[in-house]
Design a protein around this nucleic acid. Structure first.
Length: 373
DNA sequence: GATGCGTGGGT
DNA sequence: TACCCAAGCAT
């Protein structure tokens, strides 16, 4: 079972070359990325640890999300809720509003639940072990290991998409992901040092993000290229091996943007589960595979509005493409019978509207979300 | 183990 | 353009 580990775990001998971990840590000291939730390597080496709340918040935001997208949200959340206790005491609706646009909204719901658990069950302090962390909502294998390593300097095996790429190339792992993950986790564990495990984890991720990239990796600048089997074989881009993906189906629907005489927009709240759970939307039909279905508004009106055809929007979700026809009408304020509310135009942008719904409203009412230039 | 779950940027 | 990809988790 441990057949991959023999080369990586050779004990340092008096004249042996620097270990893979040391090469990587030296590179990290020189070339680490500067990120808002991090402390610098010299501070870390001096024993200072980053704020576990900051590490947890950033790690959850970074799940399947780019650093670039996360930075502004991270700053906004710290501004609104400086401590985990503040977040625990917040209104869930306000958390959803602050998260709107970042995607994967179950993360926001679990973020709030996790903050509540930390505040009530753990006295406002995060557990320091992988096991304790993983028991919390929204924290899985990766995030538990990352927080344990980075915030608490535990020697945990941190395996994310970046590390998978580095490891799969280092050892030329032919098994496709995700089936190869248990093996890769053992490989990471075998090269994770007892000294500076948090910096080692961040170094592996920085290497994957800046050198060992998915396409056109910059192997010439890699501090561990001498140990890399894929580099020596000349085929790093072949790894990690992945299975073919399924085709993305298309779904169709119609969205109704109703405004009152003052320009307020009629909004509804989606249920807490499933797609866009807990987020706000305009009323609309179901989203189905039938492009020709005759649309019917999902609400009753006292008089039949004349819906103006505003054209359509396309939005691509993870597992399907959505094509929505957008319609607009002015409707008497008390004429709609549905479970929603009238939101003034001035406060639309602050609602918990996912990007697809901002596109819909922007299509019907151009300028609703115009950004200050 | 497979599936559901957002969004924006890059090529 | 039509893909691919990004610090995964829950069920």
């Amino acid at each position: 079972m441990q057949r991959f580990t023999s080369t990586a775990q050779a004990l340092p001998l008096p004249n042996s070359p620097p270990s893979l971990a040391n090469l990587l840590l030296d590179w990290y000291d020189r070339s680490h990325r500067v990120l808002p939730w991090r402390i610098t390597p010299p501070m870390a080496k001096a024993g200072k640890r980053p704020d576990p709340y900051h590490i947890w918040l950033s790690e959850v935001m970074l799940q399947q999300t780019t650093v670039q997208a996360v930075k502004a949200y991270f700053a906004k959340f710290l501004d609104l809720w400086p401590t985990v206790g503040d977040l625990a005491a917040a209104e869930t609706e306000d958390v959803m509003k602050a998260w709107a646009g970042l995607g994967y909204y179950a993360r926001a719901r679990n973020l709030k639940k996790c903050a509540e658990a930390v505040a009530s069950l753990h006295g406002g302090r995060f557990p320091e072990t992988e096991e304790g962390l993983k028991a919390l909502p929204g924290i899985g294998d990766y995030t538990a290991a990352a927080i344990a390593a980075i915030a608490f300097n535990r020697q945990s095996a941190v395996l994310d998409g970046n590390v998978e790429r580095v490891i799969s190339r280092l050892y030329r792992v032919e098994t496709p992901v995700p089936a190869a993950r248990p093996d890769m986790r053992r490989l990471v564990a075998a090269i994770t040092p007892a000294d500076r495990p948090g910096d080692f984890a961040q170094a592996m991720m920085d290497l994957g993000a800046t050198i060992c990239t998915p396409r056109r990796p910059v192997c010439a600048l890699c501090p561990i290229n001498a140990d890399c089997r894929a580099f020596k074989a000349g085929d790093p881009e072949r790894f990690p091996v992945k299975l073919a993906k399924k085709a993305k189906p298309v779904r169709y629907g119609t969205a109704y943007v109703a405004t009152d005489a003052a320009g307020a927009v009629y909004l509804c709240k989606r249920g807490d589960k499933g797609l866009l759970g807990g987020m706000t939307e305009v009323p609309g039909t179901d989203w189905t595979a039938d492009a020709q279905a005759t649309p019917t508004p999902p609400f009753a009106t006292q008089t039949v509005p004349v819906w103006r055809d505003c054209g359509g929007i396309v939005h691509v979700f993870t597992h399907f493409e959505l094509r929505l026809a957008v319609r607009h009408a002015e409707v008497a304020r008390d004429a709609i019978t549905a479970n929603g509310w009238w939101e003034p135009r001035a406060t639309l942008a602050a609602q918990a509207l996912p990007t697809v719904m901002k596109k819909v409203i922007e299509k019907a009412l151009p300028g609703s979300f115009a950004k200050a230039s």
